[in-house]
Amino acid sequence: MTAPAGIVTAKRGVAGRILDFFGKGVVNIVLVIVAVFWLVPTIGLFLSSLRSSVDNSHSGWWTVFTRPAQLTIENYSNLLGNAQFMGSFLNTIEITVPATVLVVVIGALAGYAFAWIRFPGRDWLLVVVIVLLAVPLQVSLIPIAKLYGDIGLFGSVVGVILFHTAYGLPFAIFLLRNFFTQIPGEMLEAARIDGAGEWRIFSRIILPLGLPAIASLSIFQFLWTWNDMLVALIFTNATSQPVTVAIQSQLRQFGANIDILSAGAFLSMIVPLVVFFAFQRYFVSALLAGSTK
């Protein structure tokens, strides 16, 4: 083929394009096989969630392809009517949104102070923050559980939010400080000469210019908090548990309630998947920022 592929396919239409796509040789076939392998388990869960519990316990989800009639949205309608599950879904939102907002706000404030306000011991404090990046969350669970017990935060959504906020901060400060230091210092100097205070510089210059990093951080923190189970497992009770814990507790009778499990798991995945695909660009750039800096 001498002509550029794009021109040829434009003439050949959709069918031609598909042929072209698969005609690229072994490489593409391998890529397709791997992609399918990566996707099949998720598709399996999705199709299971669209089958009745009787079907799910007597045959595999792949029978859908030979008997499409068994598909039903009954599981989802049951789930939406299940007060406990929907409550846990709301809890997840109640935990995730404040924990994300708090980390972004507090992290941005501190990131700015580390980047542009001179104060004694700044470098040492930054070293402490970087060391704290290494602290596994597990280390904090027992003392904080005791502390929450003493001050009455145990079992509350607030306790979980505060914990996630504290653990999100080292990464937030690290990421935002690195980004903020790249903002040209002359801009800040000019603003200072014009009589702008720190707060004004922060809100008028740093925040608008730092928006890409803030967006990346928000997505990260959102996904981490939404997908967390360990923290919630320890600090919440039956009324404040998020959806991950609710699903995990259903697992004890795996097989008996595959319908609830599959639909619930899939429902809990939809929000992060939508966030992920909508903001994929920021997500990838955040990964790269975190890795090359």
Binding site: V34, A35, P41, T42, G44, N227, M229, Q248, L251, S268
Partner: peptide, 22 residues
């Protein structure tokens, strides 16, 4: 292709565990 392979990153570990338990 990248998005397909990258997708599990967005799924919670619990969700992934359920998927694989199946």
């Amino acid at each position: 292709f990248k998005a397909l392979v990258f997708m599990p990153m967005a799924i919670s570990f619990v969700g992934a565990s359920i998927i694989w338990k199946f």
